[in-house]
């Protein structure tokens, strides 16, 4: 792990510890919990996109498998949440390996379509296999998760739990990047042929990262199931996969912190917009919540037009420019 990343991680942990001391409202904590789920998935996706250079429009499917494995095993078979989460990770790894081997031979848009197709198939299966998944009616009464025999009942407890998992996810990701595998990955992103000639086993590397990023998604899905206690196919549609890629791209896919920023930003934006509506209406502006979608689209568009490397990179440049201004 590099010094700057360590510093960032420590800052994040401090922030996570401090936030519930300042914000005691379960609503805001709840929003931040959902944000944590997206962050976790996006960290994994960033390893795949930014470091291994492979796109996946199918990560929503891995989130779904993680969530459904947890939901089905705990409710139908009565497993403990941790065991079900572990099983979910194993199932997702196997599925990712099976899907990854033929899929990762594809390139560019073909890879995008193949992963997208995979995501739709999983979504259709979630809808159609009613006996297993509950179909569109979903699965009810998914239990809460416990740590050392203590059930996480309050939002604050779940907040700490989910962000601790995000911190661990970041730690693992940074270690991976700076390991031999990580260097191999970066070589792969630069030029596959060159990497291969230097003895990097491209196929094995790609599939390993694909599986790892799928596991991130699976854990995120599993935690979603234990938090909401109810799942149906709704949150795991194809558009969720597209949204995840958008988060990574908006934040900046060449840096884990970028993906992290993008996930935070796009998870909070809708809630921010819905709160802004109240204030605008209080001020007598005839703003309709229906316009949210326009504002959301416009913000996304402006970011991509003016911040080519994503928000995180843009922020960094702004900070550097600010420093230069001060020095003068």
């Amino acid at each position: 792990m590099q010094g700057r990343d360590t510093a960032g991680l420590i800052a994040l942990i401090l922030a996570v510890v401090a936030i519930p001391l300042v914000i005691r409202n379960d609503y805001y904590l709840g929003v931040l919990i959902f944000t944590a789920f997206n962050c976790l998935t996006c960290i994994g996706l960033c390893l795949l996109m930014g470091y291994a250079g492979q796109i996946s429009l199918g990560h929503g499917a891995f989130v779904a498998i993680g969530a459904y494995a947890s939901g089905i095993l705990t409710t139908t078979l009565g497993w403990s949440p941790w065991a079900a989460m572990g099983a979910g990770i194993i199932i997702v790894s196997v599925v990712a390996a099976i899907v990854g081997v033929p899929t990762l031979r594809l390139k560019g848009h073909y890879l995008a379509m193949a992963t997208l197709g995979f995501a739709s198939i999983i979504h259709i299966l979630a809808v159609a296999t009613v006996d297993l998944t509950g179909g569109p009616s979903g699965l009810l009464n998914i239990p809460r998760i416990s740590i050392f025999g203590h059930q996480l009942n309050s939002d604050m407890q779940y907040f700490y739990f989910s962000w601790a998992v995000v911190a661990i996810g970041l730690y693992v990701a940074f270690n991976l990047i700076n390991s031999r595998v990580g260097r191999g990955l970066r070589a792969l992103h630069g030029s596959e042929e060159a990497a291969a000639s230097l003895g990097v086993n491209i196929t094995a590397h790609k599939i390993q990262v694909f599986i790892l990023s799928a596991v991130y998604a699976a854990i995120s899905g599993s935690m979603y199931a234990y938090y909401v206690n109810y799942i149906d196919p709704g949150p795991f549609g194809v558009m969720h996969s597209v949204l995840l890629v958008t988060m990574v791209a908006v934040g900046g896919m060449h840096n884990i912190w970028g993906a992290f920023t993008g996930a935070v930003l796009l998870s909070l934006l809708p809630e921010f917009l819905s709160s802004a509506t109240d204030y605008l209406q209080l001020m007598g502006i005839a703003y309709q919540p229906d316009y949210d979608i326009l504002v959301y689209g416009a913000i996304l568009l402006l970011i991509m037009l003016f911040l080519p490397e994503g928000v995180f990179d843009g922020l960094g440049k702004a900070v550097r420019a600010g420093r230069r201004m001060i020095r003068r």
């Binding site: 597209v242 890629v245 979608i293 689209g297 991509m304």
Partner: peptide, 22 residues
């Protein structure tokens, strides 16, 4: 980059969808 352009088209699609809804 291709990915950036694609995300731009996603943003435009959200805008067009919103406009159609309004």
């Amino acid at each position: 980059t291709v990915l950036r352009l694609i995300i731009i088209t996603i943003a435009v699609s959200i805008l067009l969808k919103g406009a159609a809804m309004c």
